[in-house]
């Protein structure tokens, strides 16, 4: 899967004075911080503070209006759409709150999707996907469709999908937002354990302190401005 071992000191992903405006109000108004390989970083803040926008910028889904996103020394914001898409397919994994599993594909096929998008053969991709489902304790769901599984199970399938490609960074946007405490904790434990095992960094957007407690450190976003609590402390 992934060959990189955690190197906590190397900067992996950094934001430099990010600005992004949707409509009349700025969603991001100067965000700066650094994320190192293998660490789990929580991005916290009240609703509407710009957390999700920050995540979208970091993942190269949207381009910031000003400022830079550096991934392994390369400026993400300067890459073409195709190059950013390729990066998202290869190096990143995603977990969202809702609507992320393709409803007509089975769970195995959903998990295999990132690998297949990256050109893997179907058999091989589905074999790996089955392994990951096993690891996330949902092996029996393989041939069910997302509509037939519970929210917590679906979210674990989504975590498997985020991890299956051996990403260096996993972006998780309120991954437990739709779950009860027990299921939420289970998903968080599986997500962070798996990420630590594979050495992937996790950018975890959440407004819940108990979810953020699974992180190594936190970044607080307030009114579009970020505050790296490591520097404060």
């Amino acid at each position: 899967m992934t060959s990189s071992t955690p190197q906590p000191s190397t900067p992996l992903l950094s934001a430099d004075a990010l600005h992004k405006t949707y409509g009349p109000t700025p969603a991001l108004d100067g965000a700066d911080f650094t994320i190192r390989s293998g660490e789990v970083v929580a991005v916290m803040g009240p609703s509407g503070s710009g957390k999700s926008t920050l995540l979208h910028c970091l993942a190269g889904i949207v381009r910031p209006d000003a400022g830079k996103v550096l991934y392994r020394g390369e400026e993400l914001s300067a890459m073409s759409d195709a190059a950013r898409s390729a990066l998202r397919r290869g190096d990143f994994g995603f977990v969202f709150q809702f609507g992320q599993l393709v409803p007509e594909l089975t769970c195995v096929e959903n998990v295999a999707l990132p690998l297949r998008l990256n050109g893997a053969k179907r058999k091989e991709a589905e074999r790996l996907a089955t392994e990951w489902l096993h690891r996330l304790e949902v092996d029996d769901l393989g041939h069910k469709r997302p509509g037939e599984v519970s929210g917590g199970q679906g979210q674990r399938v989504a975590v498997a999908r985020a991890l299956v490609g051996g990403p260096r960074v996993i972006f998780a946007d309120e991954p437990t937002g739709a779950l009860d405490s027990l299921n939420g904790e289970r998903v968080m434990r599986l997500l962070t354990d798996a990420a630590r095992d594979t050495g992937a960094a996790v950018v975890l957007v959440t407004h819940e302190a108990r979810v953020a407690a699974y992180s190594d450190r936190e970044i607080v976003v307030r009114d579009g401005k970020s505050r790296d609590m490591e520097r404060v402390a």
Binding site: H56, R84, S85, F94, G99, P114
Partner: peptide
Amino acid sequence: LLAVLIAFGTR
């Protein structure tokens, strides 16, 4: 769903 797939890097 389309937006999520694009986030994944789907062409």
